[in-house]
Design a protein around this nucleic acid. Sequence first.
DNA 1: CTTAATTTGTGCGTATGTATG
DNA 2: CCATACATACGCACAAATTAA
Lengths: 134, 134
Amino acid sequence: MIDPSADRAVFRQLADLLRDRIMSGELGPGEPLPSELRLAQEYGLSRTTVRQAIGQLRTEGLVTVDRPRGTFVRVPEQTQTITLARGERVSARMPTDAERRSHRLGEGIPVLVVTGPDGAFTVHPADRIQLIRP
Amino acid sequence: MIDPSADRAVFRQLADLLRDRIMSGELGPGEPLPSELRLAQEYGLSRTTVRQAIGQLRTEGLVTVDRPRGTFVRVPEQTQTITLARGERVSARMPTDAERRSHRLGEGIPVLVVTGPDGAFTVHPADRIQLIRP
DNA sequence: CTTAATTTGTGCGTATGTATG
DNA sequence: CCATACATACGCACAAATTAA
């Protein structure tokens, strides 16, 4: 399963294993991952290394942590569709820490930035908002 | 500067300090941050804690790491504008690990996903692509 | 050209705090 | 009150790559 002598770092290999289990549906939305201690024992790793792997999945937006209940596969949010007006531009970036809190954004969730021709812009959580050109 | 007894974690306080220096322009694009060891000594922290703070800025897309040269304030990429067709929808998410490599995406950079009425979609690096509704 | 110093990456261990059940 | 689980913070060691001497 995990090869410490491989080129790829151990924590990345563990992240790959867990990501595969999520992407394949073996671990469905809302389902808990094994605890950090459990994973550490199961694969013979330190908890630090396990946390690095889970941290990777968090930045990818694949899992959410409900402390101290556990780590869970992210459940997709209900998305709302916003219509773009003429001349509006769309970009995306990661939110600042302050934006994360004010918009109640989970980890690993980008924001959509819609800028009008006048330069005014609005910021939308990318897990709840979708844009459409009518 | 940093208050270990504060509610906010020390590594977040350090991330805040560095982020402020970047946002204010004191640390401009392409400029190096102090080395991890330097920051640790300067603030009386462990290197682990400093790395947590820098890791935070990496996930926000504010800095890039060129190992082992150092950590640098991200230099904005040249952006290309793509025109949206009728009925196309736009969303954003973090790339998968595979997408990160194939698109040569830096850390903390989301992707823009444009989906046509037929369900076909294209993926664009958010630091190089901007969308516009004409 | 060789060697040393620097810097980030990885991995381990320990300890303590906090919130949940 | 106790056990579980994640968060924070410290320490150490070694590897790999670049840069400086």
